[in-house]
Structure formats: C-alpha cells, structure tokens
Design a protein around this nucleic acid. Structure first.
Lengths: 241, 241
DNA sequence: CAGTCTCTCGAACGTTGGTCGAGAGTGCGA
DNA sequence: TCGCACTCTCGACCAACGTTCGAGAGACTG
C-alpha cells in the first residue's frame, strides 16, 4: 500500500483498498519499505519545513504531505504538534559540538556554536519560551555548567554564570533572528530615520544598522566573561592549566 | 444598539434589528455610548486576555466577546491579529519608567524595570521575536543608548553595550518566563534528578532550582556592567558627575 | 433631505490541530 | 493452518481559528 508518485501524492486517489487494479502487485514498493515512517524522519522533515518557511510553515498537513502520509498517521508517532516543535528544537542542538580545553576558551566556543546554530535556524529562539528538556539541550547545558564549575564557580555564582551566559546567547539570537531579513531591517531603519527628532541617539548612531552582529556579540560576550572572571566575592580569577 | 448584559453577552440574541421589542428604548444605553470601541480598549483587553491565558488564550473571537462586539468589527480597527500582538507588546512597555541619574544607576534601573515588566506579562518575551518598533519600546531603547553614549561609549562599543544589555534582559526574561509555573519547574527538576548519571553537574548544583531569580539576574547584570565599565580599548571607566 | 463617512455585523470560506474507529499487514503461539 | 494480538495507517469528521465580503445603521455635512 501507500504507493506514491514522485511528487509525493498518494496513488489511486480514493480507489478501492485491497484487490483493486489487477496486476497492481507489480506496482507495489519492492519488499521491505525503506521509507518507513519513524520519529526521526518526522522530526528531520519538520526541521526542513521550519528552515524553509518558519513556524508558520510547519503544518501537520504539510508535514504529512512531505512524508507521503495521511495527517492522522503522524499522531500515532507524536502526541501533539507541540511535541514536534519540542523535538525539532532539541534536534538542532545536536549540531552544536561539545568542545574541550581551558574553561574560558571552551565556554566561548560552546556559546559561539550555540548561537550560530540558532541563527542557522531562525525559527528556534522564540521556541525556547517552552521548556526544553531534550537530551541534546541538557547535554550542552551540563557541559557549560561543568566547565564553569571546573573554573571554580560554586553556589549562586555558578548559577548566575550559567544562566547569565545561556540567557545572553538566547537573547542575542532572538534579537538577531528578528532582524533576519534585510527588508525588515531596511524599513525599520527608515522608520527610525523618519523620527530623528524623537530618537536622536538611535538615529545618530545608526541603531539597527546592517552591522557585524558576530563581532558585536563576541565583544559583549567578552565583556561578560571578563566580568565573570574578575569575580565577585568568591569568584575565580584564572583558568586552570 | 448593542445593549449588553453584565456578562457581556449581546442582548436580544438574533432579534430583529430596529423597532424590535416595544419600549426597548428605555433599555438602551443612555446617550453617548461611553463604551466606544477604540484601539486603546482593544489593546488593553488583549493584554488582559494574554495575562490570563497566554498567547493561546488570545483569540479574535474571545477578544471580540470581551468587548461585547462581533469578531469582524475588530478588523475595522486592526488589520490582522499580529497587529494586536505588536500593539500589546508595546503597550506593556509603557509600564517601564524612564529613570534619570548617573549612567550606571540609570541603566541598572531601566533594565531591572524592563525585566520586571516582562515577567509580569510572561507571554511577552517570545513575542520579541517579531520586530518591535512601537513608540514605548523605542523611547526606552533611545534612553538606554543615550545613557550609554553619555557615559562615553561610541561606535561599535556603544552598539555592543546597547544590544548586549537588551539581549541579556530579553534572554533572562524568556528563560525565566519559561519556568513560570511551579509545576513545570517541579517536573523538570524531577526529570533531571532521574538522570543524575547523565547530568551530574546539573543535578549536584540543583540547576532549575526554585531559586532567587532576581538576585541571579542582578549578579549577572553587575558582571556585565563591570565588564562594560572596565572597557576594552576606548571604553569608558567612570560615571559622569 | 440627500449624500457621505464612520463604524458594526451576519454569513460564510478555507485552513488548522486533533479524534475516532475501521481496517491492512505482520508475527506468533497453538 | 488457523486465529489472535499488536503495530501502523488512514478516511471521515469536528470544533475552532483568522479573515473577507457586502449590507447596512447611525451620525454628521451641505
């Protein structure tokens, strides 16, 4: 069953189920279906859809279509659409390599890769407004906190450092993905310039310019790391060997 | 017309329009309708709905119901539902007072109030994934950058400081609003503890504990401000008088 | 009193996320 | 070989959603 043509449309339309067209046997898929519908395939396809058209582009029907399957079928593998979103978010975190080395370099590396991945999938930052407890996310968080702990942070200092870094990355990615499209940026700048009287500083300094966001982020990150390393009270100062 | 009872249901159901019930005149609203439908009322009601039930709770139909109006009516005042969301986001920023004083204190104050407002409306952080160009948002941003500029920051340093602070606030609010409900936090911690082998550091340090988020945020903010004030290259060091 | 402009709404459309129960296909034990 | 149970798929259907259209009511203007 479920013979599909190249465009992914189900063959036969609403034709009779079994024993339909004579000789239909020969048209059937070979033996073991190598296109078995799995959770992994669902999630991967969802990520494709999200990358292509954003959150609005992910529809259970579109998703089913791409997988050459009827929409209700998805609900056997997945409980709700939110499940798909949660799984998609965790899936892209697998792209973030877990580094090694001295804590400050390792943290920098992780955070930069983290940000790069989110920007590669601009639909993801707002979705972090939902609890993310997937294995990939947790593994990276574990590493981050581990690195900071190995640097000597403890207690509230450790918590502040971990959350602070994570929040900084997430906020940056959210903001930058907002201004993803050049057109949006352009109209926004025009909007600002037309109100130069109200926002003299923003206009004078060309806020929302098409600037080097990467450099901006790294600068901010270094500020934060410096503040961290400087420590307050019991904070650590230097890198371990 | 449009007499409403206390529960906001339209009176008369589907009764005849004009010249319906005899004596209905006396039941009509006094003279000039003091419940005129305005954009402001729409937005204020939308914020109420969002506060009560989150983004999922805001429906054009529910909104119209609360305003004792038929759904299509809203579309005369507003182009799409997204308009309502954008306006709602800008509306809550009016709650953030614009401070004064030495730059570091003023910035701290603004940022803290900003965060507090977003947490009071936990639906708002993910919505910053959409361009926010309302007057209230821009006014606060203008102030933030103005304060930093008056502190001596210029060029890329200024941009990094402005965006860095904004991103830090947004990220913090997004993360914290994610774990808004104690139940979600509880199950998440249980989930973590059940996997102590995989996430030893997170479990040992009770990541996602029901901690003092405010203190955590202030600590992180101070780290950042310290890194900022310390400056890199041409960065400033001290507060102006 | 006609005309215009502002504002409201009933009816309806297309699409969405999701449910239900009927099956097809497969593997397994008797 | 049969029958049963389990896995997986789907057609039909549902309520709810955002939004459009055109018909008006009501209030001002000339």
């Amino acid at each position: 069953m479920r013979a599909v043509d190249a465009k992914g449309n189900r063959a036969g339309g609403r034709g009779g189920r079994s024993g339909g067209v004579p000789g239909e046997v020969w048209l059937r898929e070979p033996r073991a279906r190598r296109d078995a519908l799995t959770l992994d395939r669902i999630v991967a396809t969802a990520v494709d859809l999200l990358d292509a058209d954003g959150v609005a582009g992910l529809t259970m029907r579109r998703l089913a279509d791409r997988l050459a399957v009827a929409p209700p079928t998805l609900y056997w593998h997945v409980k709700t659409k939110d499940d798909v979103l949660d799984l998609a978010v965790d899936a892209i975190f697998a792209e973030v390599p877990v580094p090694s080395g001295p804590w400050r370099d390792a943290v920098r590396e992780l955070v930069l890769a983290w940000r790069a991945t989110m920007l590669r999938h601009p639909w993801s930052p707002p979705l972090l407004g939902r609890p993310a407890l997937g294995p990939n996310v947790l593994e990276r968080t574990e590493f981050l906190q581990g690195a900071l702990a190995s640097a000597g942070f403890t207690g509230a200092h450790l918590a502040a450092a971990t959350h602070g870094l994570a929040n900084f990355v997430i906020g940056s990615a959210l903001t930058q993905s907002t201004w993803h499209s050049p057109e949006a940026l352009g109209t926004a700048r025009a909007h600002l310039r037309a109100r130069a009287d109200d926002y003299p500083t923003l206009v004078a300094n060309d806020h929302l310019a098409d600037q080097d966001w990467d450099a901006l982020f790294e600068r901010g990150l270094d500020h934060f790391l410096t503040g961290l390393a400087q420590g307050i009270g019991s904070g650590p100062v230097s890198s371990p060997p």
